[in-house]
Nucleic acid binder design. Structure first.
Lengths: 200, 200
DNA sequence: GTCTATATATGGATAGAC
DNA sequence: GTCTATCCATATATAGAC
């Protein structure tokens, strides 16, 4: 048990490479051979660890999403005043998204391509509790507002800046420092703070 | 010229089917044969109208994005007070996104998969002027705020509600009426209005 | 647990008849 | 302008040696 974690077994190496490749090119855009090549093994060897491509993809999702739910929940935790909680959530969630680009890409691809079964699975096993935490924060911030809608808006404000990063640099007023997580967090924080009648 | 527009030639029919299929499954997720089958012709016939798959995809993007720039610019136009302009933009942009799901999907896929050349092309030929219109509105609304960041936030607030629609229904507090464009527009409007110190 | 070799299906694309 | 037939590369997946 300890050994396999220390040395990093083949399965984990496959998952790391699969995560990167699926994130960058999508499920249909990556072949099993390409994943195998990235691992410096043959495709046939890969089938020793995973029964087929779809199982490998699902295992990759589990691997990529592991611990994210917990991290988001802690970011949106109930400690402190609503304003303190907002600052903590925006800061940590922005950093979380910035530091694992492939996680964000996989998430966005899943929103585009996930079938009902997979999306329900992701929602219930992964995002139900962190989303509830964000919705709880939303309710503390603006009791009159629909917490579900405000929670989505909070996450969307942050995620969309990353999502549009590849094209923003070609748009008027686009600067490279707009991709800086701290700049994004500061902007979102100022916007939401003012929406809640507090000084930015 | 008139005839081809009235009867709707094969090329247009191909582009309509390609738009739907590329939007739903992505470039790598759709084969030329599948597009041909949707058009009820053979794949070889398709190559009479387009030299290869990539050219068909690029033509599909042009077809899907046609007139969108103009529509967004009009939504973000300079007439009226800042508050009137905001209401008009949020209302129309939300409706615009809601009424053409495949356009939105193609846009999101392009943000994920577009190479630098294609993203620069889209930015310059398609989004430069409408984005400038939104940034102009942002500047009128909040002169102290970076108009680029605020413009992105405005668009993101709206788009993210559509992007997350497939998974929101499985999340706590999710209701089907959260997918209603008017509900989304009302929520975003209330949020932004308050962020700018006006009554919702 | 990884390899070579291969079965089998499907992919993009072309040739040439009509 | 559409068809049938086909080329050839690549796809997923398996068999069986080591």
């Amino acid at each position: 048990m300890v050994d396999s974690m220390v040395r990093g077994d083949t399965r984990t190496m496959v998952l790391e490479n699969a995560k990167r490749l699926f994130a960058r090119h999508g499920y249909a855009g990556v072949s099993v051979r390409e994943i195998a090549r990235a691992c410096d093994i043959r495709a046939a060897s890969l089938y020793h660890h995973f029964p087929d491509k779809e199982s490998l993809y699902l295992a990759t999702m589990e691997f990529a999403f592991a611990d994210k739910a917990e991290a988001i929940m802690q970011a949106a935790g109930p400690d402190g005043s609503p304003r303190e909680r907002l600052i903590r959530f925006v800061t940590r969630f922005t950093a979380l998204i910035a530091e694992d680009r492939d996680f964000r890409l996989l998430l966005q691809r899943e929103l585009l391509d996930g079938d009902e079964r997979r999306l329900r699975l992701i929602a219930e096993k992964l995002f139900e509790r962190p989303f509830q935490a964000i919705a709880g924060l939303a309710e503390a911030l603006a009791p009159a507002c629909d917490p579900h809608l405000l929670a989505i808006s909070l996450a969307g404000l942050i995620l969309f800046h990353f999502e549009t990063a590849p094209v923003r640099r070609f748009l008027p007023g686009g600067r490279t420092d707009h991709d800086d997580p701290e700049v994004i967090a500061h902007h979102v924080l100022a916007l939401i703070s003012r929406a809640l009648g507090e000084s930015p």
